[in-house]
C-alpha cells in the first residue's frame, strides 16, 4: 500500500471555515522565542498566538524547528541538557518559563502525543490511569474506572478494548496504540494537547481515524499538531504556521495559507518545489 496517498476524505469538518475568534485572548502567546541546542540556534525570534478550541498546524521542511517549538509549550526541552530557551511563552496569561512555575503542573495542563506510539509496557487500564494516579485526580477506584472509560470513549477506542483492559497496551495495533496515547493524554484533562507528527507511523486508515478524532477533540481542547503532510494540515487545522530554517515564515487561517500564501517560501513549499 502506498502510504503517500491521502486517505479518502475521512471527515469533512463540519465547520468549513472556522470563526476566527480574534477578540478572545489567545490560549498560548509566544513572544520572540529563541531556542539554542548548545551553539546551534534552532529557533529564531518566533512570535505566535495559539487560539482556543482550534487545531493549529505547524508545517515546514525537516529540521525547521517546528517540533522544537512544540516542545517549548510543555517544556519538554528541559530534559535536553544543552537546550536553552529565551523569550516569553504564556499559557492563559501565565509565563510558563517562570522559575516559580512547577513543570509537573504545566505538563498536566499541556498534554502531549508523540510521533511514535509509546504506550507504557503496562495494561491498557494502567496506561490511562497513570496520569490521574500521579496527579491524584481521583479518590476512588470507581471514579478512576470512570475516567478510564470516558478517556477511551473520547479517543474512540472504548469499543475495541473494553473487554481486554488488562491486556498490555503494547499488544494493540499501531493506530490503536496512538489512540491509546491520546486517551492517556486526555485522562489528565489538559487544556492543550500537543501532537508531534502523530500519524507519521500509521497507515492511511489509522490516520483517518486520528484525524477524525482531532476534529472532535477540538470542541474541548486547544490542539497544536506538527505534521509533514500538507494534506493533513489542510484537512484538520484551522490555522497553519509555516516554519523554515528556524524562522516562523507565515501564520494565518489554513485556507489562506494554502490558497493565498503571502511569502514566496511558503508558496514554494506548499507547491512542492522544496522540502
Amino acid at each position: 500500500m502506498d502510504s503517500n496517498i491521502a486517505p479518502s476524505q475521512p471527515s469533512v469538518p463540519t465547520v468549513v471555515s472556522p470563526p476566527m475568534l480574534q477578540n478572545e485572548p489567545p490560549a498560548i502567546a509566544a513572544r520572540t522565542v529563541n531556542v539554542f541546542y548548545g551553539e546551534k540556534h534552532a529557533l529564531k525570534d518566533v512570535t505566535i498566538d495559539i487560539y482556543r478550541r482550534q487545531v493549529t498546524a505547524f508545517i515546514g521542511p525537516s529540521g525547521c524547528g517546528k517540533s522544537t517549538f512544540l516542545r517549548c509549550f510543555n517544556r519538554m526541552n528541559d530534559i535536553i541538557e544543552t537546550c536553552r530557551v529565551t523569550g516569553r511563552i504564556t499559557l492563559d496569561g501565565g509565563d510558563i518559563y517562570d522559575p516559580r512555575l512547577d513543570v509537573v503542573q504545566l505538563r498536566a495542563r499541556v498534554g502531549m502525543v508523540f510521533q511514535k506510539p509509546n504506550p507504557f509496557p503496562k495494561s491498557i487500564y494502567d496506561n490511562i490511569a497513570y496520569g490521574p494516579r500521579i496527579h491524584g485526580l481521583t479518590t476512588s477506584r470507581k471514579e478512576l474506572d470512570n475516567v478510564v472509560e470516558q478517556s477511551l470513549r473520547r479517543a474512540a477506542l472504548w469499543d475495541e478494548v473494553k473487554d481486554r483492559l488488562s491486556e498490555p497496551g503494547t499488544a494493540l495495533s499501531g493506530g490503536q496504540q496512538q489512540r491509546l496515547c491520546i486517551a492517556r493524554a486526555i485522562a489528565v484533562s489538559p487544556d492543550v494537547i500537543l501532537m508531534d507528527e502523530p500519524c507519521s507511523a500509521l497507515d492511511p486508515i489509522a490516520t483517518a481515524k486520528i484525524e477524525e478524532l482531532m476534529d472532535e477533540l477540538r470542541q474541548d481542547y486547544t490542539i497544536i499538531i506538527v505534521t509533514h503532510s500538507m494534506q493533513q494540515a489542510a484537512r484538520v487545522s484551522q490555522r497553519t504556521a509555516f516554519f523554515h530554517l528556524g524562522e516562523l515564515v507565515e501564520v494565518g487561517p489554513t485556507e489562506e495559507i494554502f490558497t493565498r500564501p503571502q511569502d514566496k517560501r511558503t508558496q514554494d513549499y506548499i507547491t512542492g518545489r522544496f522540502g
Binding site: N74, M76, I79, V104, Q105, L106, R107, A108, G111, M112, F114, K116, N118, P119, F120, P121, Y130, G131, I134, H135, C181, R184, A185, V188
Partner: peptide, 27 residues
Amino acid sequence: VPPSIREAAYGLGASKMQVVLHHVLPL
C-alpha cells in the same frame, strides 16, 4: 530503556523520581 517511555511519562507530568521509579527502573 527506550527514551520514548521516559518522554511519555514526562509528557504526562510525572516528576523525575516518578519517571525513574515507575518506568525506567522496572524496565
